[in-house]
Amino acid sequence: MSALLEVEDLTVTFRTAHGPVDVVDGLSFTLERGASLGIVGESGSGKSMTSLAVMGLLPPTASLRGRVSLDGAELTALPESKVRRLRGDRMAMIFQDPLSSLNPYYSVGMQIEEAYRAHRAGVTRRQARKVAVEAMERVHIADAARRVDHYPHQFSGGMRQRVMIAMALSTEPDLLIADEPTTALDVTVQAQILDLLQEVRRETGTALVLISHDLAVVSEIAEDVVVMRHGLAVEQAPAERLFSDPRHPYTRALLDAVPRIDDEIGELRAIDSIDVVGGKA
């Protein structure tokens, strides 16, 4: 049986005034059912574009080469209407800023129902509402039956991200992509959201791609890690090995740049781009 997600030689190119720019350059990785993969890198390393490419949500100015397959179906070869049927159903995505990612004009319940009904023909509003309440309960939103009618601005940041997760999970997808899901949240809430992602992964068997610039976040959840820089995967390894024995100088530099609590107080280490030259792992 093939892996759940296979990305092969993925290249995303943007047309710019200075000619084409590859923001993702020949990236390959696979993800088994129920597994978890972390993609780390600095801003602009191409990690978000990778996730949008998988979802088929690249902006119109971007073009894509290579192959992305979900459960054997080659997404990059399917027409948009077919990909749309998988999007939100077999694969779902949550984003960095949960406030701007939810539509302020509609109740959270309506937005979850909408995600569910888009992929379940003939479902009544009442059934969809029940699914929405259950999805909200699953992500531990207290008093979900009442909160379902509330609007995004009536929720705190962490609760909004829970709503986003509930929305993504309402269709029980095989793959959940979380693009910087905790970056816009404060630290205590970050930990809660990460715990929640772990928990839903355990309980639903959803495979998870976690995208973050934060190594600590990735180390907590991911089984495998891809380190990206300038659109290239510089190192790919099981998380344990990568953190204990980073092979690529850039990965080492990234790890060194993380301030440690047992360090002497001194200057924070920055990544020197001259020392570390990116290359394919």
Binding site: M55, L57, R84, R85, L86, R87, G88, D89, A92, M93, F95, D97, S100, S101, L102, N103, P104, Q111, E114, A115, A118, H119, M164, M167
Partner: peptide, 13 residues
């Protein structure tokens, strides 16, 4: 807007 991207990510028509 990000919420339009979310709507697309849901697979809405």
């Amino acid at each position: 807007e990000n919420f339009v991207r979310t709507a697309r990510a849901k697979g809405l028509a």
